[in-house]
């Protein structure tokens, strides 16, 4: 019981802080918009963290799921449908369907080949999006208005949109935590650690992985639909493979193995990007090396920082072999 409480303390504090921001009136609307964007990326990152940290499936095509969600919003907007009760389920279903089809093929492979095949499917989605000339092709598509919820323009207001995103983030985090703790999640984690033993016990890992892949895809679609609403703009750039790389980076920066780490990673990434791009014109010259350093030295990410600091203070020169994340 106490262990469970300490485990939940950090995420609970994080959500409380995020909840307090709009009522404290810090920095005005700009800060809210920025944090909204970070939380939306956080939703996508949590779903990717379920795949990478939970199931050991390193997907380099997760941006495609977000892109499909975003394009579902754009396509319905072009058809004049802006009702959220139609838009959001469509976005989720479209991304889940794409994940089901591509996952069924991709999961025949493992390790490096899985990274490559998800990248290939991501590129296919990217080129498909660039060819939708009715939705602007390469130039992208500007939404007429944000999605309505049951006919009311709830998402138009900055603060209520922020709160909706926060609620969804908490819901996704809670859901993914529950999934990882369930019997289903145990099979996923066991298959990540040792696939052969899981087979020997009588489980076939592939159906479990496919279900996890589809769920992560659907959540990615939700994040994409929200992001389309946040920027009121959709373009193929949101499906590019660099976005998939960024999403993976958020997960690692925050810390694998802890789902709230992905949220921390998204917050750190968006805030750092914003801050650096104000300071320097060529801000990636600073950002890139920071990324490399984070991978080299921050083994357990931001969420694992307290533990890493404790370990460093007791450091002794020993050799340790790191756990492989892509089995």
């Amino acid at each position: 019981m106490r262990a469970a409480l300490t485990r939940l303390a950090a995420p609970a504090l994080l959500f409380l802080l995020l909840l307090a921001v709009p009522f404290l009136g810090i920095g005005g609307g700009f800060v809210l918009d920025l944090l909204t964007r970070a939380m939306i990326l956080g939703i996508a990152a949590v779903s990717l963290s379920l795949l990478v940290g939970g199931a050991g499936l390193v997907s380099l095509g997760h941006a495609a799921m977000m892109g499909i969600g975003a394009y579902a919003v754009a396509a319905l907007d072009a058809a004049g449908i802006t009702e959220g009760m139609i838009v959001f389920p469509t976005a989720l279903a479209a991304a889940a369907l794409f994940a089901l089809v591509t996952g069924a093929v991709s999961l025949r492979t493992s390790g490096v080949h899985f990274i490559m095949i998800t990248l290939a499917f991501g590129q296919m989605a990217f080129f498909t999006a660039s060819s939708f000339s009715s939705l602007g092709g390469d130039d992208g598509y500007t939404l007429y208005a944000r999605t309505e919820i049951l006919g009311s323009p709830l998402l138009q207001d900055r603060r209520s949109f922020y709160l909706v995103c926060l609620a969804l983030l908490a819901l996704v985090w809670g859901g993914c935590t529950a999934i990882l703790g369930s019997r289903f999640g145990r099979v996923l984690r066991a298959a990540r650690e040792n696939e052969r033993r899981v087979r020997a016990v009588g489980f076939s890992p592939v159906p479990y992985r496919l279900v996890a892949y589809v769920m992560a895809g659907a959540v990615g679609g939700l994040a994409g639909a929200l992001l389309a609403n946040a920027s009121e703009f959709v373009s193929p750039a949101s499906l590019s493979w660099t976005r998939s790389g960024e999403l993976l980076f958020l997960v690692i920066l925050g810390g694998l193995g802890r789902l709230h780490g992905a949220i921390l990673g998204a917050l750190a990434f968006v805030l750092l990007e914003e801050w650096l791009s104000h300071l320097f014109v060529y801000w990636r010259l600073v950002f890139g090396p920071l990324l490399v350093l984070a991978v080299l030295f921050l083994h357990d990410g931001i969420a694992g920082l307290p533990g890493s600091l404790r370990a460093w203070s007791r450091w002794r020169p020993t050799f340790s072999k790191r756990r492989s994340a892509d089995a």
């Binding site: 790389g245 980076f249 690692i252 990324l291 490399v292 991978v295 492989s324 994340a325 892509d326």
Partner: peptide, 8 residues
Amino acid sequence: DHLSQVLA
């Protein structure tokens, strides 16, 4: 692992 290599 490969993941760290991809990211760095």
